[in-house]
């Protein structure tokens, strides 16, 4: 097959090919580190029942929505009590409730957020807990 304006067309196709496949070239043969969020903080170790305020599956899918709702009820409505699906009450507070147990922001929050390139704006207002380097 004879090609006319072959130089330009081939150049275009190379660009096309690269654009479509570059994730392959970036990753081929690499072993990808998987995020492993850690829940082994001293505070959690101390708990009798090692359970979050809701189920693990719920928290995994909906924590962002829950935090968003908490922000709204605490900051905008002054409502500081959360009743979970089992009727148990919790104080609405990122610092004192969530981060009390999950005091390891780097290993717990950032691990997945960085992996997924998600940039939550929690820490625009809140002060991240000081972490002891373990």
């Amino acid at each position: 097959m004879k090609l006319y304006d072959g130089g330009k067309i081939i150049a275009g196709l190379i660009i096309f090919f690269f654009l479509v496949t570059f994730p392959f070239f970036l990753n081929i043969g690499k072993v990808n580190a998987k995020p492993e969020p850690k829940i082994d903080t001293p505070e959690i170790q101390k708990l009798a029942e090692k359970k979050c305020i809701e189920s693990k599956a719920f928290m995994r899918a909906e924590h962002m929505k829950l935090l968003n709702d908490w922000r709204d009820s605490a900051v905008r409505n002054g409502e500081r009590t959360y009743v979970n699906s089992k009727g148990k009450e919790f104080t609405i507070s990122l610092q004192n409730t969530c981060m009390h147990c999950h005091s390891n922001k780097k290993k717990f929050c950032d691990e997945c957020h960085t992996y997924m390139a998600v940039n939550p704006y929690c820490w625009n207002c809140h002060i991240a807990p000081k972490e002891k380097e373990s």
């Binding site: 090609l3 304006d5 067309i9 096309f16």
Partner: peptide, 14 residues
């Protein structure tokens, strides 16, 4: 997608 796309473009180029 990749081979088909290239084939069509090369066909035009021919």
């Amino acid at each position: 997608f990749i081979t088909g796309f290239m084939y069509r473009v090369l066909k035009w180029g021919s």
